[in-house]
Simulated assay, not measured.
Amino acid sequence: MDVNTIIAIIRAFLKGCIDSLKGSISLFYLDRKINEKAAYERKKQSELGKRKKSHQPSQIKDGKVLTRILQCCGLNGGVFWFSLILFEYVLIPSLNYLLMRILGQSTIATTVWTWSRPLLSLTFGALWVVPIFLISKLVNTLWFQDIADSAFWCTAGKAPFFTNLSKFFADTVFSLIIQSLFLFQVIAVGIGFLPFGHLSQVISLIHISMLYSLYAFEYKWCKIGWELHKRLLFIETNWAYFIGFGLPLSIITALPQSYVVSACVFSILFPLFIISANEAKPVTKVCDTSLPLFKVVIALSNAICNKTLKRATLISPNTSQKKIKR
C-alpha cells in the first residue's frame, strides 16, 4: 500500500466522520424544504387534475421530521432513560434511607437491604424496563421509517414500488438474520474471544461502526432497489468511508455501561444519522483491498437458510401424503 492510497483512505475516513454529523445541521431546514416541495407538488397536481378532469388521491405529506425526532427524544430520553435515573438515583436511595431510619444501622437492616435491592431491581426490570424497551423498539422502528421516507422524498422524490414482494420480503428477512449474527460477532470480538488483547476493543468498534453505517444507509439503498449482497459489498469495498461514518455514533453509544442506556442513546441520535446518510455521497474506490467483515455471518446465514429450505422440502411431501391418505 503506497502513500497516496493511505492518504486517500484517511481522507475518506474523515469525510465519513464529517458527513455523519451533517444530519444535525440538515434537521433545522429539512422540514422547510419538504413543505416547500409538498406545496409545489400539490400545485402541480392541482393544475394537472384540472386539465385531465381527474381527482387522484395525493400521497404528498408535510414535513414532520423534527416532530418525529423530538418524539424519539421524548420517548427514549424523557420517559425511558429518565425513569431509569429516577429508579437508580432517587427511589433506591430513598428506600434505603427509609429502611435505615426504621431499623437503624443494624445487621438486620443490612441483611434486609441485601436481599431487597436485587428483588426491587428485578421487579422494576420485569414490570417496566422490558415492556417499555419492547414498545420503544417497535415505535422507534415506525418513526425511523417515517423520518427516512420524508428525507428520501425531499431529495429524490417518490421511491419506486416493488412489484416482487416475495423477493423484497426474503431480502428483508435475510438482512435481519445477517444483522443479528453480526451483533454476536461484535460481542464475541468485544469480550476478547479473539487473542488480540486490547486491540479487540478497537476491532469491535470498527465492527459496530460498519454495522451502524449499514443501519443508516439501508433505508436509502432499499428504496433505490439495492439488494442485500450489493449493500454489503459496497460497504466492505468502501470500508474507510463507512468506518468513519459510523464511528461517532459507535463511540457515543459505547460510553454508557448499561446496554439499556446505550440503546436509549442510540434511539435518540440515530435519526440524525438517517438524515445524514440520505444526503451523503460516499467516497468510493480509494483502496483495492476490501474489508470482508460480513463474510462469516453471510456464510452462516446461507447455511441456516439452506437447512431451513431443505427441511421444508423434506416435510412438505410427507405432509401432502398424509393429507392424501386421509
Rank of each mutant, 00 (worst) to 15 (best):
S24V: 15
E36F: 02
F217P: 01
L269V: 11
F184M: 07
W143C: 07
L314C: 06
G23D: 08
V3D: 10
D19T: 06
Y89S: 06
P271C: 03
A263S: 13
K167N: 06
G225E: 03
I268P: 01
R231S: 00
F174E: 13
K295S: 15
P118R: 03
G78R: 08
V260D: 12
T313F: 11
K310R: 11
R117A: 10
R101M: 13
C222D: 14
V139F: 06
Q257W: 12
N164R: 08
K37C: 00
G74M: 05
I304C: 02
L86F: 09
D19P: 05
N238Q: 05
K50E: 14
V260A: 14
S250H: 07
Y40L: 14
V90Y: 11
R231F: 01
L127W: 09
I324P: 00
A299Y: 11
I275V: 12
T253A: 04
L14P: 01
S24W: 15
F152A: 01
I7K: 13
V130K: 09
C287R: 08
V65Q: 03
S267D: 02
I34F: 04
F87D: 02
Q56M: 12
E36C: 01
I9S: 12
S150G: 00
I108T: 15
L66K: 13
K310L: 13
H229C: 06
P57A: 08
A39V: 12
S121I: 14
R311W: 14
